[in-house]
Nucleic acid binder design. Structure first.
Lengths: 207, 207
DNA sequence: GTCTATAGAGGGATAGAC
DNA sequence: GTCTATCCCTCTATAGAC
């Protein structure tokens, strides 16, 4: 897995650091955080566990960097304050599409969000905040898009929308061929009276 | 946590066995399977890890027994072939209600279902089969209850229904006071045109 | 039925050589 | 910047005493 592009004249230290985070991402994705050892990460990145600990002070630090690196990629698609309600929903559907092409990333969040429900988990506050922020962006979007029929409130719709995505990911990981996550999410939006993009966006096909 | 009732003249071996499974359930619920050790389970049950291994051949065996014990309790609410479509949905909503009173049980399934997406996990086939069976019972129920408007197919509705429940559990575990799982599930059913029980059933309140 | 003792593997983290 | 060596801890599982 090459998770991030490498600059042309990248210093060796930076390069190793990136390799370590790529390996940590892949292994945490497969087995969660607690089941993966520093030695596992090191072996995958082609060095010893002491080598890893030269770049990161401890195991937890690698997790934090894995998570924040992901956020740098997704944040503009969700957190941009200039995003209109329909654009935000479009972007979230687009992320579902992309997830279908990145099972390791889906597995990372499925495994970690479950582990992190434990308040003692190092990523607990990260996930607590992640859900809060996502909700804070979804609620006004749903408030704008939902016709006020007898459906759910924007707050409830936001929770349902997020829950649906999370739950679909588990079923999709268990049997990728049997689940069309995008269709399921789009169907839910349509049931709410929101018309989402009907076909996968072509400009995202080759990412 | 006393998870099962104890018969009056229960032999000591059976009693210890039950205590071990109660402890395993509670600890697996809190931290998942892989993060819990036999010594953790043993200490919680008041014996040594060798004592545990007298009653169960290995760690994995405790997990299998924890899972199958839960199924003995829930199966009649879901798998009874004499159940009508509306009754099945009612029972599933009732299970959501009960889950609100048993966070450790919710945590068990959230943690294990995430871990078990890994095909190498000892509970992988268990969860694969569990989702399949649940779907096989939900699809005909939705087929009977869904008016054939432009909504999801019974197959898709079943997946969405299960996904919604799973995803809500994560958000609920992260912030129990902020999430009303029952209301969210009932709202989803109503959006599909299905009228579920409007209030928590009184005969389940004191279980 | 439960214990102690032990084997054998693997974990996170540190010290210091190169 | 990466290594080896080491510390000290925890793990699953087995053997055998009581």
């Amino acid at each position: 897995m090459t998770d991030t592009e490498s600059p042309r004249h990248e210093p060796k230290g930076e390069r190793t650091r990136r390799r370590i985070l790529d390996s940590a991402t892949e292994l945490f994705s497969r087995s969660g955080y607690r089941a993966v050892s520093l030695r596992d990460i090191a072996a995958h990145a082609g060095l010893t566990h002491s080598g890893v600990l030269h770049h990161f002070p401890n195991k937890e630090s690698t997790l934090i960097h894995v998570l924040s690196r992901r956020d740098e990629i997704d944040a503009p698609l969700v957190l941009d304050p200039d995003l209109g309600p329909a654009e935000l929903i479009d972007n979230l559907v687009r992320i579902v599409e992309r997830n279908t092409r990145t099972p390791w990333l889906v597995s990372l969040y499925v495994n970690l969000s479950a582990e992190a429900t434990d308040p003692a988990h190092p990523a607990h506050t990260y996930f607590y905040g992640r859900y809060r922020i996502l909700r804070e962006h979804l609620v006004p979007a749903f408030a704008a898009l939902l016709e006020d029929r007898a459906g759910p409130s924007p707050e409830l719709a936001a929770r349902q929308f997020i829950a649906l995505q999370d739950g679909l990911q588990v079923q999709w990981l268990l049997d990728p061929g049997a689940v069309d996550m995008r269709a399921a999410v789009v169907s839910f939006l349509r049931t709410l009276g929101i018309t989402p993009p009907s076909a996968p966006s072509t400009d995202e096909r080759h990412v």
